[in-house]
Amino acid sequence: MSLPDDLPDDAVLTEQGVDLAGARPARLLLIACGALAHEVLALKRLNGWDHMDLKCLPAKLHLYPDRITGEVAAMVEKHRQSYADIFVLYADCGTGGLLQAKCAELGVEMLAGPHCYSFFEGNDAFAAHDDEISAFYLTDFLVRQFDAFVWKPMGLDRHPELRDMIFGNYTKMVHQAQIEDEGLKRQAAAIAERMGLDFEYRFTGYGDLARSMARQP
């Protein structure tokens, strides 16, 4: 599937991250999870936010949430002299409040909310889903990178018999779509079938990500 930007492919965003800063630093640096790169670039382009540079850490850091805080902090420290402001495009992302505490200590702002499933839908709307504790969420990026992010790390390519041990308590997979793309929707439905779960499609757009970026000076 083609994506409307010049990013490296999703496998690179997952494994290595990407540095999209120009030769001369812009005013604001966005330090983001690689899983958000397409969406952040789309918002920059749509809104003409040329004062923002984007550097992404590898999306696969989410497989080791205890490493996220340290990696983000190191990147903030490395670049803070070159930028007037830094905005961290991570939610809590399984850091148990440690990323929030570190960002506060460093004096930089970060996204509100527990994770991208929440802020794409809008944190308030997401929190209102009391009846969705057994939902497994996939954003567009995670649909495209499902095998690299979920299926292979959980060993399901080698040991499919583990499927129900891993997903047995879930009842449905919700594809939270940031863009309208029928091909991606079909791909998500096929993933739900592979997981043995019901499928629900939910268009979210960019949600609180867009609103938070728009608030940046």
């Binding site: 060993g155 399901l156 040991h159 583990l162 041990m165």
Partner: peptide
Amino acid sequence: LFVPEVLLAAN
């Protein structure tokens, strides 16, 4: 070792 291997060992 990673989660899948631990799950298999647990089984």
